[in-house]
Design a protein around this nucleic acid. Sequence first.
DNA 1: CAGGCATGCCTG
DNA 2: CAGGCATGCCTG
Lengths: 428, 428
Amino acid sequence: MTATRICEMEEDKEYEPTGSSSYSNLELTSEETMKQIWGEILPFGFFKEIMEEISVSNSDLENGDYISQHGNLVSPSYETSVVTPSTSTSDMTYTEYSVGQSEYPGVIPINQLAAIKPDQLKLAQATCALPATNNWQGQYGFSLSFGVQEKPTKTTAWTYSEMKDKLFVNMGAACPVRFHTKHLPPPGTILRAMAVFTKPEYVTEVVKRCLTHSSRNEASNENHPAPEHLIRCESSQAYYLVDPTTGRHSVVVPYENPQVGMSFIVYLFRFMCLGSCVGGLNRRPIQIVFTLENDRGLCLGRRALEIRICACPGRDRRNEENLLEKQHEPQQGTVDSVKRTVVRLSQELWNNTPLPKKVKTSSDDDKIFTLEVRGRKNYEYLCIMRDALEKQRYLTSEQLRAYQHDKELHFSKPKKKGNKNSSGEESD
Amino acid sequence: MTATRICEMEEDKEYEPTGSSSYSNLELTSEETMKQIWGEILPFGFFKEIMEEISVSNSDLENGDYISQHGNLVSPSYETSVVTPSTSTSDMTYTEYSVGQSEYPGVIPINQLAAIKPDQLKLAQATCALPATNNWQGQYGFSLSFGVQEKPTKTTAWTYSEMKDKLFVNMGAACPVRFHTKHLPPPGTILRAMAVFTKPEYVTEVVKRCLTHSSRNEASNENHPAPEHLIRCESSQAYYLVDPTTGRHSVVVPYENPQVGMSFIVYLFRFMCLGSCVGGLNRRPIQIVFTLENDRGLCLGRRALEIRICACPGRDRRNEENLLEKQHEPQQGTVDSVKRTVVRLSQELWNNTPLPKKVKTSSDDDKIFTLEVRGRKNYEYLCIMRDALEKQRYLTSEQLRAYQHDKELHFSKPKKKGNKNSSGEESD
DNA sequence: CAGGCATGCCTG
DNA sequence: CAGGCATGCCTG
Ligand SMILES: [Zn+2]
Ligand SMILES: [Zn+2]
C-alpha cells in the first residue's frame, strides 16, 4: 500500500480524532461508501445487483462529525447519465439514458456505514470531488506499461518517458496502453480512465474538451457520442460517463483478461484536446487515472499516469527530461521564492472556502520556513502546499514548520510500504 | 478612382467581351446593383424607401452571360437579420429581427440594371461575396486617422503603424478611430465596419469570433447582443448585422458629423478575438473595411485597414516594421519557391470549384514563369495568384505568363488614376 | 521530419 | 511592462 499524494494513509493504526492526518482518510472512507451505496449503473451487464446487502456496523469510525462538516454528502439527483457507444448515427445527438434513481436517502448516518475491507477503501474516484490518484496495484496486481518504441522522432505520435513516468502524445493519436494483472479479476470487472488536473489549484475542476474541439462541426466528432470527453477508448464497448455528483467525465470498458500466453491486454486511448487548448486544459498538466473496478463499482487497482498532449511529443519529452536531469543537482529556493509560492498557493487554496485565509510566512534562516494556520481543514491545504513546494524543489518537508493555534503541526513523512504516518502534537 | 485589389477597373473604356479583365468589373457592377435593389433595411431611420425608382437602361454592359456563369446571383431568402443593441438583458439571447423580405425575383435580367453613376458602382460590400476592399474617399472625402500616441510600449493596448498602414491592437481593447469627411454627407448616413480576411485563399470565408470567445459563458459576452461578432463599436446606437446573403457580419452606427471646429469624429472599436484564435481567425490576417453608406445603402466612401489583434501590439508592430525595412532591399524568388507558391495557391483556389484544377508551371529562365489554365473563371484566379506572388516579392506581373487554350493571357497592369487596363490576345 | 518561427503568457 | 519561455505550426 503506497501513500496517497496528498495525505498519507494508515493501515492498522486507529484513527485519531484529534489529529488531522486521518482527515483525508475519512474523506475517502465516507465518499467511497457513498459510492458503493449509490453506485453507478451501467447499461451493460458488468454491474449487477449494485445496491444489495450493505451490512452496517462500524467501530473504527468515530469521527462522524467530519461528515457533516465536510458538507458534501447531501444527495444530489442520483441519475447516472450514460452515453452509449456510437452506433454511427449521423445526427450526433448526445444520447443520455437516465438509468437508475436511488431510493436511498440523501445522507447516510455514519454509523450505518459498512465494515469495509481496506482494499475497498481505495475508493472509486468517479464520485469523489478530489479523486484519488495514488498508484495501487491491489490484490490483482494491476499495472500498465508501454511497448518499446523505435527511437522517437520529434513529432512521433506518442512516446512514454520512463524517467518521468509520463506519456507524451499527439492530440487524437491512438495510443496503445498495455494493462497487466497478476491474477484474474472477477468477471464483470471494468477499466475506467479519467483525467484529473495535476496541480492542486485545479484538481477540483472537471477536465473536459475545449469548446472548439467539442463543437459539433469538428471532424473528430463525427459519429462520436461524447464530443466533450477528453479521453476516448477505441472499443465498441466503451461507455462515456458523466458522474452525476461531480460532473467528472470518464470512459469505461469491460476489462478483458489477457489472452493465454499474453501478459497484458492492450487498449487504444485517444486524447482529444491539446494541453494548450484555450478554455480547455489551458496549459494545465493533467494525469489520467486508470482504475480497475469490479461489478459493484469498487476499485480493485489504480494507476495514475501523467500525460502531456502536445504537437511535438518527442521534442517536449526531451526537453522535460533534460530539465529534470538539470534539476537533479539539488537546488534550493530563496527565502523570497518560497514566500511567494506559499502566498500564491495559499490564496489559491483558501480562496473558495469559508475558512480563514490567514497565512503567515517567516523564515528563521534560509533553511526553515514557518506557516501559521487555523482550523482543522487547513492541515489538508498545508499538505498540498508542502507537496507543491517540494515538487518545485524549494524545500523539503523537514524545512517546513506549521503552527495551529500556537501548536506546531508535524507533517507526516512519506514512508515505505506498510509504514504508518504520525500526526500529533509536540512542544516546540 | 483607384484600382480594385483583384482586377483593375476601367472608367471610360468599353468592355471587351473577349477579354477577361472586365470580368471582375462586371462582378462589382452587378453585385452592387443587386445590393441596391435588395437593399439592407435597418431598423432605424437611416434607410428609407430603399426599393424605389431604379431606372433601367444599360448600354455599356454587354456581357450579361457572365452573370449566370458566375452563378452567385440567385436569390436566397432575403431577410435581413438585425441584432439590436443591448438593452442590458441578462439572458443573452441573440435578438434577431427579420425586418424585410424582398419581393424581387431571384435573378434580375441584366439589361434591367440601372444606369448607375460611377460612384455608386463602388458597391456596399455588405452583400458582396467578395467585398471590395479598395480605398476610395468618395465625394465626401471619407478617411480615417489615429491620434498620436505616447511611445508605444510592448504591450500597449493599440498602436497604429504609418509605415504599414496597419493597426496593432489587443483583443477587447477600446481603440479610438477618427473618421474624417471633407464635406457633410447627407443625414441618415451610416458608418459600417466589416472584417475580411486579407489573403485571397480566405476572402470568401466569413470572419467570426472563435467558439471559445463567442460562448455564452465568456465574460465579454455578458449583456452583449452579438457574441459572435468580431467587431464591436462602443455606441448605444450600434447595430450588429448578419448579411442574409453572404452571412457576413458587420456593425453599423449612425455617422455623426464632426462637431464644429473638429475635423473628425471618433468611434471606439473593439476586436473580440485574437488573430491567433483557433477555429476563428486562426492566424489569418484580416482587414477592417469601413464604409460610409447613405440611407439607401449605397457606398459613399471606403477605407480598408489592415489589423492585427494580438497580445503584444508594440512588439509585433516593431517586428513587422523591421521585416518590411529589411525587405525593401528587393529580393527575388527562386524558380522553386515560385513553383511551390503557385502550386499551393492553385490548389487552394481551385479546390472548391468545379473548374479544372490543371495548372502547369515552367520557367524558361530564372525570370519568366508560365502558367497554363483553362476556362474563363481561371483568369480571376490567375490574378489572385499573380497578386500573391507579387506580394511575396517573388516576381512582378511582367515575369508571369499565362496561357489559356494555347493563347497567352495578358495580365492587365495596375496604372494610376484614370488609366485603362488592357486585356486581349497577342501572339507570343 | 527537424529547425525554427509565431505568438500568448508567465516571471521578475 | 520587458525579457523570455512555451508551444503550435510552417518551411525546407
Ligand atoms: Zn481543444
Ligand atoms: Zn477567439
